[in-house]
Design a protein around this nucleic acid. Structure first.
Length: 134
DNA sequence: ATATTGACGGACC
DNA sequence: CGGTCCGCCAATA
């Protein structure tokens, strides 16, 4: 009974909370936020929530949320510059370096306390492949 | 209540 | 590696 009522499905508020958990200098994808929120939340919903921020855009680091390809979906708002100001590096293709600034997700304690869930596997790749980058 | 859109993601070619 | 198509879910008209 201590479980938060899912009836309301306040995706917006939840998404805002998760986005606020993203530290400066880090970036997260819409899909990651959706996964953390869980409960059938999808990347599309995250985009809607951020689009409905309105005046709350000043209290929610929406700039740290980018698409899966590491590119900026929204242009004209200086999102890329904002991220660069936070220390996020971009490549010539205008895409953020996910391998360097991709948020690992919230801690299990934080997530569980909020009723969310941590990321299952951010970027599981065999370390052996790293050796043969040449 | 139904149809269309949308700050996406993943699969396919 | 890049562009394209389909799919998922909610909000809005």
């Amino acid at each position: 009974m201590t479980q938060p009522a899912r009836d309301e499905r306040d995706y917006f508020e939840r998404i805002y909370t998760v986005v606020q958990a993203v530290p400066s200098g880090k970036v997260a994808t819409y899909g990651d936020i959706a996964t953390i929120v869980g409960d059938g939340c999808d990347a599309r919903v995250v985009g809607h929530a951020l689009g409905a921020l309105g005046a709350r855009s000043a209290t929610v680091p929406w700039q740290r949320i980018i698409n899966r390809t590491g590119g900026i979906s929204l242009t004209g708002h200086g999102q890329k510059e904002l991220l660069e100001a936070e220390g996020v590096g971009f490549d010539e293709r205008g895409q953020a370096r996910m391998d360097l600034h991709h948020w690992s997700g919230p801690s299990e304690d934080w997530a569980r306390a909020r009723g969310f869930q941590p990321l299952p596997a951010p970027t599981a790749k065999p370390a052996a492949a790293q050796l043969s980058l040449f």
